[in-house]
Write a protein that binds this DNA or RNA. Structure first.
Lengths: 337, 337
DNA sequence: GTGAAAGCGCTAACAA
DNA sequence: TTGTTAGCGCTTTCAC
């Protein structure tokens, strides 16, 4: 009545359970005709090996866990999809968790994944500092790969974008289009990418001779509303800068909308840039110049580390895969110098 | 060196493994001071029960699987997030798969979940007819819950929206705003919700005296580009209808954009409605009248069925949870009759 | 190339 | 209330 087991197959095929195991997994050679017999018996019973029993015996599963801060953010969604797809090709199951941007939930999910005996955890930590403790604890028992963001002092593998190079490329572009003054609108700097992008923007403005007044650095929430509010504040504070650099596309779309409402013309009165290249361009009247996150390449790099970690290769020191950004020039900076 | 096992705890606490199991799980009463001793021993060793061994012994896991067609669609993303959140509260892990809208991949994922010994599978089948075979096969060994969409002839639990009521409400609204003629733009009817929405639209137009010419029924891809292309065709085919009913918000946004480019004014020249209420309204100049999918309620209903199925309740016939749609009136139908 | 048998870590049945 | 023991389904020695 219950599901067929390996002994059922063995009995039907007239061999031992060991032979069934070998025939089906190919772990050891089995005579051709025996193999066929076993296969036939398995098929006729609709047998599928119980992965629980296999995992117990082998002391390893084929599960990996993944924790992202926010599934309503297309960046993470696409990342999850890219990872899922590649893992399935490797016959690895994905246990997905969302931390909802909450460090407490994040810690809970980590423990839950640990109980599930996952082989590797992929995580985009939600807070640069507060996530660190839980991550360090878990990292003692299961290999971690940090993606995009990272937690302070947690030495694990990491896959992400070269934010510094991205900002350099971006600022070089707007300088070529005549920018001499800039504003920066970003997320409050509690996650590592928000901070690293801001740091990079500051450094590059300095290096390339663009004035970025501290009062023109506005940090808030990474949402359309946050961007719109910031554009409002910016317009009230006197002269507009040549360019508004946004730390994320959603912010930039809010800024575009805010300027539109205020009758400020982009790019004629002010240029605007984004970061991420989420697929909203098709929705808006004015297309956005931005930095494309190579999401698929990030997923690929992450999964390749997973393979590495799950293989029998000897332990190695943590490795950082730094991916190259791509500048996408569109209308929001379409201005002659 | 390896992870501590129950025998390590038992030895340290000076009791049997059975007592440790009882003390830690609470499956049977244990004397208070013994319990404390066991707890202390477990803590000091950093012991966490091996869920693989437990699952093998109990012949049940705490995993459920979920298969959605497309993670770039916010509807499914939000659904996944809602489900994940509630399952975690129940200490259930979520194995997530994407079928990428492909029946072959879908079948593969189903088998993968079966191997993982999930207790329940939540699925939004990608094709009304072609998904049926694989679903029926799997349903013999593991309980299925279909969400939103369903496969033809697969009798399982189902959670979704009352499409007929939604269309009735929507069409009633545009009739009140003076609509007498309509066009319908939707996805090609290979998934069950595309078909059921179109059927409902046809029926309601008939019932409420709105003319819906077959040549004004345009089926294509559920994307912004698809909507834009359809709006183009519509404008070329002569007189515009009073209202363009779209089977999904993304289509409607494409239509809005198409009309904008053609100099056609919404809602003055033509009204437009969507379906889903995805959160793009903030991005666009003109807000969209639409039907809100109660995603959170769908997730809640689905998880409550999961609980039901995983509890020890006796088997019961498949149950359909039909949720109520909500009409969201915004600017795209803001016209006096 | 094949079979017999042990054992992965846990819990449930049975005894005490 | 507690301990002893068997066994979940599989893979992997160790013999042959």
């Amino acid at each position: 009545m219950g599901k067929p087991t390996i002994s059922d197959v063995a009995r039907l095929a007239g061999v031992s359970t060991a032979t069934v195991s070998r025939a089906l997994t190919g772990s050891l050679p089995v005579r051709e005709h025996v193999k066929e017999q076993v296969q036939a018996a398995a098929d006729s019973l609709g047998y599928a090996a119980n992965s629980i029993a296999r995992a117990l015996r082998q002391e390893r599963t084929t599960n990996v866990g993944m924790i992202v801060p926010d599934l309503s953010n297309p960046f993470f969604t696409l990342l999850v999809e890219g990872v899922e797809h590649r893992l399935q090709d490797l016959q690895i199951s994905l246990l997905l968790c969302s931390s909802h941007g909450d460090v407490t939930i994040e810690a809970e999910r980590l423990r839950s994944l640990q109980r599930s005996q996952v082989e590797v955890v992929l995580i985009s930590p939600t807070h640069e500092f507060e996530s660190a403790h839980a991550l360090k604890t878990i990292a003692r028992t299961v290999p971690l790969i940090q993606i995009d963001q990272f937690a302070d002092g947690v030495e694990t593998d990491w896959v992400g974008l070269d934010d510094a190079l991205a900002m350099r490329t971006l600022i070089q572009h707007v300088v070529e289009r005549g920018a001499r003054t800039a504003a920066y609108i970003g997320g409050s700097a509690t996650d590592s990418s928000a901070r690293s992008r801001l740091d990079a923007a500051r450094a590059e403005c300095l290096r390339q001779g663009v004035a970025l007044d501290e009062q023109n650095v506005l940090l808030g929430s990474v949402t359309i509303a946050g961007g719109e509010a910031a554009s409002q504040r910016l317009s009230e504070s006197g002269a507009l800068p040549d360019v508004v650099i946004c730390g994320a596309d959603v912010i930039a779309y809010g800024v575009l909308q805010g300027f539109d409402r205020l009758g400020i013309k982009v790019p004629a009165d002010v240029m605007v840039t984004g970061f991420d290249d989420i697929a909203f361009s098709a929705l808006t009247r004015l297309s956005l110049t931005t930095i494309r996150q190579p999401i698929d390449a990030i997923a690929e790099a992450a999964v390749s580390v997973v393979q590495n970690l799950m293989g029998d290769a000897p332990p190695r020191p943590p490795h950082r895969s730094v991916l190259q950004p791509e500048l996408i020039v569109r209308d929001s900076t379409n201005r002659v110098a």
